[in-house]
Each structure stands twice: as C-alpha cells, then as structure tokens.
Design a protein around this nucleic acid. Structure first.
Length: 853
RNA sequence: GCCGGGAUGGCGAAACUGGCAGACGCAGCGGACUUAAAAUCCGCAGGUCCGAAAGGACUGUGGGGGUUCGAUUCCCCCUCCCGGCACCA
C-alpha cells in the first residue's frame, strides 16, 4: 500500500479533532495542583451541607468497571450538588485490611503492607485519571495505625458496655481462608469469598459483638429508612427475623444428665400445646447426648444424621432433607396437662434457632405432621377453624384438613382454655406459664451476635490481654494502638500468625504487672467499614472523629454502592451508628438517609470475571476513548439501578458524541465578538426559536432526572437531542442564529454536560471565554417554562382507537377547537362516511378519539 | 416453596400520572464530500402484505383472559430469566 500518511487524518486540521488524552491530562494536572476545588468547606461555612458517599473499595490492585460505574454516579451527583450551591463532602478511602493481601504476600514474598500501599497508589492514580472529584484531605486508609487504633478504642468501649464478650461456641470455619467467618459471611453454606468452599463448623473460643442488643431497634429503624431500596429493607427484615413466641419447660422424667433435667422449647403457637404429642430435639442439643448415653445403636443413628446434615449444608439444600428421627426412650412432662410425651431426636430441628428443641404438634404444623405420619406418632386436633356463618359449637364440628395452621379459630381438647380464640389462648397460656414458673412469652431473632475474631495476620489486633492471675484484661486506652508487628511469618499453617511472634504475644498484665499474653486474633474487616464514613468528616488524632463536625455532616445524604452489601456492611454499620449514638459521639440514629444500589456491570450475559475472560479494563478504555467517554458510557448504557450490559461499540458512540460537541463549540465559540454577551433578542426566527425551546426543554429534563429517578441514560439522551438540534439548525439557518443565543445555548450545554463529562466541560468552558477554575461553583442552569413551551403541537386523530391522521393545532387550543378541527379533516370525513358518531374523546395536547358505529 | 426485580426492533434501551410504541445510542442501508478509503455531514429504518412510486392495509411490547373509547402501563391466570431467603418451630 502506498504511503498516504499526509492525508491520514483527512483534510481537517488537527486542532479540530477531539483529543481526550491531551484535554484530560491537562485538566487532571490542574486539579491535582488545586485540591481546594473538591474540598469540603468547614462546617460553619453557613451553607447547606450535602454528604455524598460511595462505598470505599478494597485495594485489590486495579479498579474494575463496577467501581467506575459506582463512582461515576456519585461524582455526577456531587458535581450537580456543587453547582446547586451546596457544601459537598465527597470523600474516598481504602478498605485495606483483609485476606487477599496475605495471600499475595505468601505468593510474592513481600509484606502485606507493601503490597496494599502499592495497590492504593495505583488505584488512586486511576481515580485521578478518571477525574473523580474527591476531597483527598479526608482520605481514610483502614490498615494504618492512625485508623485502626480507633477500632481498638471502640472495642474497649464495647467491652466496657458489655457489648463485646468472649465465648466458646460452634463457629463457621472456611478452610480456604483458614479463619472463622461471621454468619453474614456464609452464603449458601459456603464462604462469601470462596463460593465453592463449604464452611465447616468448629468449636472455638471467639470474641463476639452483641448486635442482638440492638436487634429490635435495627428492625424498627427499617421503617424510617424510606430512602432505601425496598429490596434492601426486606432483606434486612428477613435477616433479623424477629419472631414472637413463648418458652415452655418440659421436665424430663427420671434422672437428669449433664444437660439438666429440663427441655426448654420455643414455640410461636403455645395455644396448640395441648396437641403436643412429642418433644423433638436437635441432634446437637446438649440433652440429646444425655438421653442416648452409650446406646450404640442410637449413637450410630445420631452420627448418620449429623453426617447427612453436614452434606446437605454443603450442597446448600437443607430444606430438601428427608425427615429422620428416633425415639430416645425417655419422656418429658407437658406442664399444661401433666401428660408424658416421648422425647425424639429429629434432623429438622435446628440447634441455632430458638432453643434447639420444639414441642411437636402434628395437627397444626406442616413439618410436625409430616414427621408424625412417617413415624406413626399421635395426631391430636386442638384447634378448629371458625366459621362465620355458624356460631361455634365445639364437638359437633368436622375435622379440619390437616395440618391446619390458621389462627382464626377456636380451641378444643385444651382443658380450661377450650373455646378461646388462638390469640386469647396465646396470651393466657404465656401468662399462666410465667406465673407458675415453667415458661414465659419471649421474642427470638434469627440475627446472631457478630463473631469478629479472625485467625489471620492482616487486620486490627484485638486489644486484650490474658493473665493467669487476672484472667481477661483490656489494654488501657493510653497504650493504644496495639501495633500490628511487621515481618511476620504468615503461612496458612494453623493458628493465628500473631501467635508466632513472641515479642508481640508476651506482655505484662495491665492489672497486676505480671507476665501475660496478648490476644492473637485480629478483627473482622467489617469492623473497619462500619464507621469509616464518620472518620471522613474529621480524621483527627485525639478521637475517632470530631463530634461537632460529624453532627454537621451526618446523616449521609446519599450512599451509593452494590447490593451485595445489603446484609453485611449495611447491618453492621447501622449497629455501629446506634452504638456510637449511645456513647454520645453522634446524634443521628441511622448512618444514611438515602441509599442507592447500582446494578452489576456484565458482559456477554455474565458478570465480568477473570475466569470467563470477559473483563473490560478501565485503563484500556481510558487510553482508547478517554475518561469522559468511559464514565459517560457507564451512565448512558442503562439506568443506574439496572444491570449494565457492556458493549465496546457503545463507548465509541459516546466518544463520537463528545467529539461532536467539541467540534460544534470549537466552531461556534466566539467570545471576543461584540454581541457575544448581549441580551438574547425577544423576536427570534423559527429556527432560532426551536433551538431555544429545545435548550430549555433539555435543562428541564436533566434537572428532573437529578431530582427524581436518576435515569441518567435519558438525561444524556436529552443532551444528545439538543446537540442534534444545534447541528440541524446549522443546516437550516446557515449561521443565522443570533450570536447572543448561540453563546447562551453553548454555555448552558456545557453546564449540563459538566456532571457527566467534567474534563470536556472544563475545556469547553474555557473556550467559551469563561473561567474554567470556577465551573464547579457556577450555578446550574435554570429553565424558563415559557421558553420551553411549544407554540404548536401535533394531535393524533383516531377512529375507534386507530390512528387515522394527525393535525397541528395551537398549543393552547381549547377542546371545542380541537374537536372541530379533527372532525373537519378530509381523511376523517371520508373514513366516517356512513358511520354514526357515538362519542368523541378529546385529550388536550394528545389526541382526539372518535368512537363510531 | 416464599419474597423481590425483569421479559419491548438485529443489539443497549425510551415511553414518569392509561393517550402517536420504539426517543437516544450501537450495528445496518442509502446519499454527500473524496481518485479511493477513513473521518465527517445528511437521510432511511419494528414486521408482513399491496403499490412502479407517493402512499396504504394488517399486525406488533413473553403467553392467555379481563376492565376501558383507548393498555407496554391497571386487574386475574400462566411461562421463562436474574437476585435473595429457604425445615426459623
């Protein structure tokens, strides 16, 4: 091929081409040099505050498209609020403790700290290149002592208030992570980080945070969170799983064992207790072992049952397990009627819900019914459905279809409680149980206390000391932080790595001064993210944050992140907020008034992942199309709450659009001409008027989107329409637009673009003769409804709902005018020939529908 | 099984309170510019059928039914996809 490079870029001179790399790097440098641009003002600035927050990333090494989407939404909002005159806090930080750093350290033989800080540097550079407007003076890095010392401080406060405690219990263990997991971190029986690794149960001594203390308030609070997605609220309600019921003690006949002489059952239907024909224990229930003793046959059955359960848990299919059980040979006494009922062990009873024991009422519970049918246990009806047409006449009524679990019903076969409604019986029976001391009304939660101990190195050391003489003792506040030692052997081989560092482990007891050892577990990293957004407001040395400053900024006005944190992070941080409020540090009850969960970024129908090889790198996109185009595409391709299907060609389209805007302004920016800043003439040509109308309609649409549904895809489409109108006007009017209008429309176009394509907006703002350094503080354009109004509108004329013709009428034409105009249309007349008009419906501004027969 | 969300051209999507289905963009086709191409600009475009064309007819928002002058939108039933929960007593 002959060399024709001289013409490779066409005849157009180079400066007429949109060159995002040059524009963007130029402005990025300016922004780095002037951090005040994106800095929050002091809390006494007198301005209305707006706190916009995106979830902080884990510094894995590089940003992915999900981050870009998340931060593009937040940045657009922050810029919009700045332009609306708010004092905006828009911070960023690093959730930088955690396992991947340790794994990378093992692999690369470099300390986790180094790996982490390198990643942070890289990702921060990416963020700056992408042009996100963060207040870096507020940056929080959770793996640094200036941050984690406050985790330790909070831990001491929790301990002091009885909200942190140590307990030996069955805990979730991920063999891959070689550490314990909280309940929230177990997904379908597997580790949330290793989705195919089944979680094992281990008996370990662990630190717990008493989240259940606030269970009721966490549940109640959801009602007030009307700025949160309904989906998240439902998930949290389900997770907390409040259930009202009663505890009832069944005394064992005969000798008591290590597990005591009583089986306490939890039931939500104490009203059915006269129908209890057995007591069922969870296989792991402490009494189970007592009752079995050394009976080899029963032990074998129990073992089989446990193995079964383990397997089902691994597959994540507990619900589908076939019901199994066996009679222990012992009996327990129903305190309400003194009856002896057999005690069974059953695999459908969960040890970690309620008390791990139930009374079985086959007639009124589906699962009990199924079990009783299989093992031929007695089924006794004690509740009859109430029929409205017929007054109750117990005894004469037919059997309900079993199992019957309705509550609009009456008790029978229940001694002194016969004839009561279920609700009445529930209250009376619970009261009687309490009075006689064999039970009481109670509330159970599915929510468990938060196990925060982790047997890993790269986390916050738990500030506790063990002394042979004084037992468990907290490290005094004055000795904080307990520093995480450097250069530690962090192989995955059993036990906490900190336990292999004698200088760390061996210490003095704060009480007696004698030799003592430190706690070697570290904290779950969800502790870090439970309160990081408070520290953003004032990262100081003397406290986790300054209360006065936090009280100005809180609650967060808009929190934006992925829905995958609906339970984990968002429950923990709500708990932490309530705890800090009760400490007197803050006044707000909830961390964020509004929450937005953006959709995933997918490609070829699947979530982007290395294993599928469908990952699109933000760096590549920025290098090819620029940051503005990359960011804007993530906003344009789908509404932000829906999943986004990535298409490279789509970014190219946005790039083309930005280039179109650039070329238009390059050609039409004439700030040095005399009439540039003149008033816009009131009399405009039709072409000019169309442009002006479109401009005001566009301002309205974009402003409405920010204030409402956040459908930035339609905002951007509206701006595209405006630009198309401008090009169309150029064709039609050949430069006839008044200069003042041209100036006005271009300036406002640039302002509308500023939240979505900040680099280009700044470049064009300068080209229009304005001070680009103050663009972010320039007032958001306002629309004029009079100017946005159409003079004439097209009305559709239908006959029996089918469009027959269209006609143009004045926008303010009244109903009679429109009706007559429609009926006088030639096409309508011919179409109606021989037909009779039944009705004419006129919808002003829309259509006329003529109903004929 | 239960609770959410979704299904609209070849593709991403739009239609906000029932009122022109498919805005905007991608891919496609045609034209202009060019020796040619790229870039750019202008135009066409749901489907089927009739027509040389202008134009017209029918049909169309996962499927079936209903309410209404009128339904992508409201109601009932069903199918499929995605997410969450799942023996919670």
């Amino acid at each position: 091929m002959p060399a024709t490079e001289g013409n490779a870029r066409g005849d157009r001179p180079d400066e007429a081409r949109y060159a995002p790399q040059e524009i963007e790097t130029k402005w990025a440098e300016k922004w780095v040099a002037n951090p005040a641009l994106y800095a929050a003002e002091p809390f006494d600035s007198g301005k209305q505050k707006y706190y916009v927050l995106e979830m902080l990333p884990y510094p894995s090494g590089a940003l992915h498209m999900g981050h870009v989407r998340n931060y593009s939404i937040g940045d657009a909002l922050a810029r919009y609020m700045w332009m609306n005159g708010y004092n905006v806090l828009h911070p960023m930080g690093w959730d930088s403790f955690g396992l991947p750093a340790e794994n990378a350290a093992i692999k690369n033989k470099r300390p986790p700290r180094e790996w982490t800080l390198n990643n942070i540097a890289n990702m921060k550079a990416q963020m700056k290149r992408l042009g996100f407007g963060y207040d870096w003076s507020k940056e929080v890095t959770t793996c640094l002592p200036e941050y984690y010392r406050w985790n330790q401080w909070f831990f001491l406060k929790l301990f002091e208030k009885g909200l942190a405690y140590r307990k030996k219990s069955k805990v979730n263990w991920c063999p891959e992570c070689a550490t314990v997991l909280a309940n929230e971190q177990v997904v379908g029986g597997c580790c949330w980080r290793h989705e195919t690794t089944p979680v094992e149960q281990r008996e370990l001594e662990q630190w717990f945070v008493r989240t259940t203390q606030y269970a009721d308030e966490l549940l109640q609070g959801i009602e007030q969170l009307d700025g949160w997605p309904e989906k998240v609220r439902t998930m949290q309600r389900n997770w907390i799983g409040r259930s009202e019921g009663a505890l009832v003690d069944f005394k064992l006949d005969g000798a008591a064992g290590a597990g005591g002489d009583t089986i306490t059952v939890f039931t939500t239907r104490i009203d059915t207790i006269f129908g209890a024909t057995s007591v069922q224990l969870a296989p792991e229930h402490p009494v189970t072992a007592d009752l079995i003793g050394d009976d080899a046959l029963k032990l074998a059955k129990l073992e089989e049952m446990l193995a079964d359960q383990r397997k089902a848990k691994e597959i994540g299919d507990i619900g589908a397990l076939e019901k199994r059980g066996f009679f222990t040979g012992r009996y327990a006494i129903n305190p309400f009627n003194g009856e002896q009922v057999p005690v069974w062990v059953a695999n459908y009873i969960l040890m970690d819900y309620g008390t791990g024991a139930i009374m079985s009422v086959p007639a009124h519970d589906e699962r009990d019914y199924e079990f009783a049918k299989k093992f031929d246990l007695e089924i006794r009806v004690v509740v009859l459905p109430r029929r409205e047409s017929e007054p109750p006449a117990a005894g004469e009524r037919e059997q309900p279809i079993l199992p019957f679990s309705g509550e609009d019903s009456l008790l029978i076969n229940s001694g002194e409680f016969n004839g009561l409604s279920c609700e009445q019986a529930q209250q009376k029976m619970a009261a009687l149980a309490e009075e006689k001391g064999f039970g009481k009304a109670t509330v159970t939660y599915r929510l468990k206390d938060w196990g925060i101990s982790r047997q890993r190195y790269w986390g916050t050391p738990i500030p506790m000391v063990y002394c042979e003489k004084d037992g468990v003792a907290p490290v005094p506040e004055s000795e904080l932080p307990v520093l995480l030692p450097e250069s530690v052997d962090i192989t995955l081989a059993g036990g906490s790595p900190l336990g292999r560092v004698p200088e760390f482990v061996n210490t003095k007891c704060p009480k007696c001064g004698g030799p003592a050892t430190r706690e070697t577990d570290t904290m779950d990293t969800f502790v870090d993210s439970s309160w990081y957004f408070y520290r953003y407001t004032s990262p100081i040395d003397t406290a986790p944050f300054d209360s006065a400053t936090a009280n100005y900024w809180f609650a967060i006005d808009q929190y934006i992140g992925g829905v995958e944190h609906a339970i984990l992070h968002l429950i923990y941080s709500r708990f932490w907020t309530k705890f800090m409020r009760d400490l007197g540090l803050i006044k707000n009850d909830e961390p964020a008034t509004r929450l937005f969960t953006q959709g995933m970024v997918i490609k070829d129908g699947a979530k982007m992942s290395k294993s599928l090889g469908n990952v699109v790198s933000p760096d590549d996109m920025v290098a090819k199309y620029g940051a503005d185009a990359t960011r804007m595409y993530t906003l344009f391709a789908a509404p932000p709450d829906r999943d986004l299907d990535w298409q490279d060609a789509g970014v190219e389209g946005i790039s083309r659009f930005l280039s179109r805007v650039y070329r238009y302004v390059l050609k039409n920016a004439k700030p040095s001409e005399a009439n540039w800043n003149a008033a816009i003439p009131t009399e405009l040509s039709p072409v000019a008027r169309r442009v002006q109308r479109k401009l005001h309609q566009t301002i309205r649409r974009v402003s409405d989107d920010f204030g409402g549904r956040w459908h930035f895809n339609t905002s951007i489409a509206a701006i595209m329409e405006l630009v198309n109108e401008l090009y169309g006007a150029e064709e039609r009017a050949k430069g006839e637009l008044p200069l003042a209008l041209l100036a006005d429309v271009q300036k406002k176009l640039v302002l509308l673009l500023a939240p979505f394509a900040p680099y280009l907006a700044h470049e064009l703002w300068a080209m229009l003769g304005e001070d680009a350094d103050t663009l972010l503080r320039h007032a958001w354009p306002k629309y004029d409804s009079a100017l946005a109004k159409e003079d004439e509108i097209e009305i559709v004329v239908q006959i029996n709902g089918k469009v027959r013709t269209r006609l143009v009428v004045a926008a303010d034409a009244d109903e009679t005018t429109v009706r007559e105009a429609a009926l006088n249309e030639e096409k309508i007349k011919t179409a109606m020939e021989g037909k009779q008009i039944v009705k004419v419906i006129v919808v002003l501004g829309k259509l006329v529908n003529i109903v004929v027969r």
